[in-house]
């Protein structure tokens, strides 16, 4: 393993960090929250937008803390950001972050892929490419009419036996009906592989 490769803890941290920035980016790009709620930050050698709305920040932070714990335990394998029409209650867009655990206690059901040790710089480049793809996806994604009439929800796909805190509850999958699916790039760490796909109402 090279010196710059990431340990499991580091890997999960990288992933949760990526989740934070990608969720912020999507919320900004799709206009779920007004642009003035976001401020520019430098990350992954990119200028990204991050919310400074305390309520939203707290919400994302709470999610990511728990997701980080689940990821460390290998209990979470998917994080989904749903964009929902407030009036209709329909899911119009569904951003699904698939997490594959390379090494886990229950290796039988996990991925059999045995990755080579990945340099942190490579991971960073992959993340950068993915975030660029997210930004670029706004060109083909349908415009969300009635801006401000949408809200979002984050769903975590966990193991059935994962420890669930009281502030978390079960939910339906909130699938998009008659959806068009676009698969994005992925990035890998030593312990995980994160892929992204967006399904949207065509």
């Amino acid at each position: 393993m090279p010196i710059d490769s990431i340990s499991l803890k580091g890997s999960t941290r990288t992933i949760t960090e990526f989740f934070e920035y990608s969720i912020n980016s999507i919320l900004y790009q799709r206009g779920i929250y007004p642009p003035e709620d976001f401020s520019r930050v430098k990350k992954y050698d990119l200028t990204l937008l991050k919310t400074h709305d305390d309520e939203l920040k707290d919400y994302i932070r709470r999610i990511l803390i728990q997701v980080h714990k689940w990821l460390l335990g290998g209990k979470c394998n998917k994080l989904v950001l749903c964009i929902i029409n407030k009036d209709e209650g329909d899911t119009v867009e569904r951003w699904s972050f698939d997490v594959t655990h390379y090494k886990s206690e229950n290796s039988s059901e996990q991925s059999n892929e045995e990755p080579e040790s990945i340099d942190s710089e490579v991971t960073k480049n992959q993340i950068r490419a993915l975030i660029r793809q997210i930004t670029a996806s706004m060109t083909f994604l349908p415009e969300l009419a009635n801006e401000g009439n949408y809200t979002f929800n984050v769903l975590a796909y966990t193991d059935a036996y994962a420890k669930v805190p009281l502030d978390w509850a079960d939910s339906d999958s909130k699938e998009v009906e008659n959806a068009e699916v676009v698969q994005f790039k992925s990035f890998s760490t030593n312990d995980h592989k994160v892929g992204l796909q967006v399904s949207y109402r065509f």
């Binding site: 394998n77 769903l155 193991d159 036996y161 669930v164 978390w168 509850a169 079960d170």
Partner: peptide, 9 residues
Amino acid sequence: KKIRILQLR
């Protein structure tokens, strides 16, 4: 081994 879909209350 079912999957649970969870959301913050």
